[in-house]
Nucleic acid binder design. Structure first.
Lengths: 112, 112
DNA sequence: CAGAATCCCCAGTGATACTG
DNA sequence: CAGTATCACTGGGGATTCTG
C-alpha cells in the first residue's frame, strides 16, 4: 500500500491503525489523566459493551499502548494504564481534542 | 454517549469520526502539500478502489474538510483541496505522522 | 477523466448469558 | 469484579461494469 511513503507503509496509516476502532480514541483520552479500572472505564463510556471494551483494550495492549495489571485479590481488580509508548500519544490526542472543540463550534449541525 | 465530556460528545470522538475511514488520514496527509486531481490521488494510493476514494472524498467534503472543484472542460478535470477548516488539521496529521515513524522504529514486528 | 450503479463479503460491533 | 462464549447484524469497503 502507498508505496511511496517513507519506509514502506505511510506513518499516518500506521497511527490510524493503532488508534482506529470506535472507542480507542476515547479510551486513550480517558487514560491520559491516569490509570483506570475496568468498570471505571465502562462507567465513563456507558454506550460501549463489555465485550467491545475488552477487545479494544486487548488490542491496545497488543500494540504496546496500554498496560494491563491484574491484582490477585478477591474480588479481582484490574487496572489499565498507558505505557511509556502510549504516553507519547499525548500530543496526538490533545491536538485531536482541541480540533474537535473548534469543529463542534463551527458545525453545530453535524457530529454535534 | 460519553455524557461527561464537555459539550456533550467527546471532541476526540468527533475528530475521530471525521478522520476515520480506512483512507481518510492518508488522503488528508496527501492534500497537505497542495491540491490534487482525482486520478492523482488514485495513483498515490493504488490499493484504494475508485468507489471508496469517491466516497471518502465526498464524506470529507460533506464534513467541510475538503473542497471539490469541477472545471467544465473536456475531458473533465476535478481538483480536491483542503478547506480552511481542513488546513487546521495539519497539527493532527503531522503529530500522527511523527508518532507513526517512531512507532515503526520501535515495533518492526507489527503494523510495519 | 471522473465518476455512478450494482452486487457482495466480512471485520467490527452489539446483545445476551455464563464463569472464576 | 472482570471478564469469556456465542450468536447475530450492520455498514464500510472491494470488484466489476457502465456513462456523461
Amino acid at each position: 500500500m502507498t508505496p511511496d511513503c517513507p519506509g514502506g507503509k505511510c506513518p499516518v496509516e500506521t497511527t490510524l491503525t493503532v488508534m482506529s476502532g470506535k472507542w480507542k480514541g476515547i479510551i486513550l483520552y480517558r487514560l491520559l489523566d491516569g490509570k483506570k479500572r475496568f468498570h471505571e472505564l465502562k462507567e465513563i463510556m456507558p454506550a460501549i459493551s463489555f465485550r467491545t471494551l475488552t477487545l479494544q483494550l486487548r488490542q491496545l495492549e497488543a500494540d504496546g499502548i496500554v498496560e494491563r495489571t491484574v491484582y490477585p485479590e478477591v474480588p479481582p481488580r484490574v487496572e489499565y494504564d498507558l505505557t511509556e509508548l502510549g504516553k507519547t500519544m499525548r500530543p496526538i490526542i490533545e491536538s485531536m481534542f482541541e480540533w474537535g472543540i473548534q469543529y463542534q463550534i463551527q458545525r453545530k449541525d453535524t457530529h454535534a
